[in-house]
Amino acid sequence: MSQLGKISYRELVLNGIFKENTIFKLALSLCPSIAVTNNVRNGVLMGAAVLFVQVMVNITISLMRNLIHPRIRLPIFMLVISGWVTVTDMSMAAFAPAAYKQMGLYIQLIVAFASILARAEMFASKNTFVPSMFDGIGMGAGFLLALTVISFFRELLGKGSLWGYQIINAKPLLILVLPAGGFFAVGLLMGLFNWISMKYEGRQ
């Protein structure tokens, strides 16, 4: 733990989930958060894919950090990221072909996620293996959480179902499964998340 001082692993994970939540706090990677979240299954799969890539990239970079010359670090990061994204992409195509058909493009787009590159640059390249892993888990879990929450509301209110199973026999707000509704859902949930965290921080 070179730079961190006394921050515990628990705090590292919580930091990624709440304080620096990729979608709700940093407002990064909003494209997939709108494009794939019209049902819970896709949202969770996408979140899990990002979690996996984030953790693996952080681990790889932290192990390689002393070998990378600072001048060419960004191309190297990109290579590592695209390597892990390719692994995810291919495994998903093999094990979940139905879901892959719907969201394959967005899996490949994980390469361009600002949050993943940012964590590689800001954290993994300066820290050792274990904290980097926990940081990856935190950031990835934050993303997974955000996507799950968004897709939960969008699928439940837009289609009346969850994970493909019909829960209520109606489509209360059809607009939520459409792209326009995605913006509504992300915006409102972002507001709610920040409101809650403001209250929480105020109480501390």
Binding site: L173, L174, I175, L176, L178, A180, G181
Partner: peptide, 8 residues
């Protein structure tokens, strides 16, 4: 517009 798209 919201209503038209939600409750066509």
């Amino acid at each position: 517009a919201f209503l038209l798209v939600s409750f066509p």
